[in-house]
Every structure is written in C-alpha cells, then in structure tokens.
C-alpha cells in the first residue's frame, strides 16, 4: 500500500476511490429518469424540449414536404399543358406535331384545318 500521510493537503487517492466506488450504486440512468418524472409531476418541466415540440411544428410538414412539392409540380405541369391544349394557337400545333405518328399524313393532325373526309376514305376507295 502506498504510504499516504493523513495530514496531506492533497486528496487521498485510495480513500477517495473507495468512497466514490462504494457509496453509489450503478443506477445512474434510472435515477435520472426518476428525477425527470418527479419534475414532471411537480409541474416544473414545461412540456417537452423544443426538439420534441418540433414533431408537430416541423417534423410533420417535413414528412409531407417532398410529396407536397411533387404534387404541386405535377399540378403546375397539368395546368400549363391544359392551357396550351385549349389555347388553339401555336401550343396546339406543337402538341399535334408531337403526337403525330411517324409517316402519318400531316393533314390528319393539322389543328387549324378541317379534316377532309377524302383523306379517311381514300384507302377504302383504292382497295375497291
């Protein structure tokens, strides 16, 4: 045993370690939980800390944020597309051109021109 003078002005490391290790059991976490529960019971704790309040204030919208943005973008595209289709102007021409199958007569898909019945009947007449 290391000789330690009882009148030493420094802390006694051996006595100190004994006291620290053997006076309190290893239930630190449980004790913290008990104290927090007691504080809640006493009404000292003003609810949950801000991080928990964020569930309603921040986390919930955050969970909805991406789907919301996607839905809004889809809606915007739909509105713009609808506006171009009903526009009847250059937008309609653009749409008709895009939807036209390759090799199909352009007259069939012309928006401004009235369809000519001859164009539809021509293959039948030729077959006969």
């Amino acid at each position: 045993m290391k000789d330690f003078d009882s009148s030493d002005h420094r802390p006694d490391p051996v006595i100190g370690r004994l006291l620290r290790e053997h006076l309190v059991p290893d239930d630190k976490d449980a004790f913290v939980v008990r104290m927090q529960a007691a504080a809640r019971q006493e009404g000292l704790s003003r609810g949950a800390p801000p991080r928990r309040r964020g569930f309603f204030a921040l986390e919930l919208p955050e969970a909805w944020f991406r789907p919301g943005i996607a839905a809004a973008a889809a809606l915007l595209v739909g509105v713009l597309l609808g506006a171009r289709v009903t526009d009847g102007g250059s937008g309609s021409v653009w749409l008709a051109e895009a939807l036209r199958p390759a090799g199909a007569p352009a007259e069939l898909f012309a928006v401004d021109a009235r369809p000519d019945p001859q164009l539809f009947l021509a293959p039948l007449l030729e077959a006969q």
């Binding site: 976490d29 004790f31 104290m35 927090q36 504080a39 704790s45 003003r46 609810g47 949950a48």
Partner: peptide, 16 residues
Amino acid sequence: QGDEEAFGRLVAEHGP
C-alpha cells in the same frame, strides 16, 4: 426555460 432534457443532463452530471 423548463427544459427537462437539460435537467436530466445536470442530474446525470451531479447526481452521483
């Protein structure tokens, strides 16, 4: 401010 988590930290630190 009534932060319970801060109370828990202080208890953990000074409780023993």
